[in-house]
Amino acid sequence: MSWLVPFAEVGARPVLVCLPQAGSGCGVFSSWQDSLDDVTVVGVALPGREHRFLDLMPATFADVVAEIVAALVATVPAGRSMVLFGHSFGGLLGYEVARALPHTHTPDALVVAASRPPHLSGRAAGSMGDGDGAEVFANLLSAKELDDDLRELVLEILEQDAELSGTYTDPGGAPVPCPLHAWGGESDELVTAAHLAGWASYAGASFHTRRFPGGHDFCLALPAEVRALFSPSRQGV
Rank of each mutant, 00 (worst) to 15 (best):
M1T: 12
S2L: 05
S2H: 13
W3F: 08
V5R: 15
P6G: 08
F7M: 03
A8V: 06
G11T: 14
P14S: 09
V15S: 05
P20W: 10
Q21P: 04
G25Y: 05
S30G: 07
S30V: 03
S30K: 13
D34H: 13
L36G: 02
D38E: 15
D38S: 13
V39A: 04
V39N: 05
G43W: 10
V44E: 09
E50C: 03
L56V: 14
P58L: 08
T60V: 09
D63Q: 12
D63M: 10
A66T: 13
V73P: 07
P77Y: 11
A78N: 09
G79L: 07
R80V: 01
S81M: 08
L84F: 07
F85H: 06
G86R: 03
F89L: 11
F89R: 06
G90K: 06
L92G: 02
L92R: 07
L93I: 12
Y95W: 07
E96P: 04
A98I: 05
L101N: 05
T104P: 06
T106C: 12
D108E: 05
A109N: 03
V112P: 03
V112D: 03
R116F: 03
R116N: 02
R116D: 00
P117I: 00
L120W: 02
S121Y: 14
A125P: 01
A125I: 01
S127M: 04
S127E: 04
M128W: 08
D130Y: 08
G131Y: 11
G131K: 11
D132L: 12
A134K: 13
A138S: 14
L140Q: 13
K144C: 13
D147K: 11
D149P: 03
R151G: 14
E152P: 02
E152T: 15
Q160C: 14
L164V: 11
L164H: 10
S165T: 15
Y168D: 04
T169H: 14
P179T: 01
W183Y: 05
G184N: 03
D188A: 04
E189Q: 07
V191G: 02
T192Q: 01
T192D: 04
A194Y: 00
A194F: 00
W199I: 00
A200R: 08
Y202R: 01
A205E: 12
S206E: 06
S206V: 00
H208S: 01
H208K: 00
H208L: 00
P213N: 05
G215E: 12
H216R: 08
D217H: 12
F218Y: 13
C219V: 09
C219D: 08
C219R: 00
L222D: 03
P223G: 04
E225D: 15
E225S: 09
V226A: 03
A228Y: 02
P232V: 04
Q235H: 10
V237I: 13
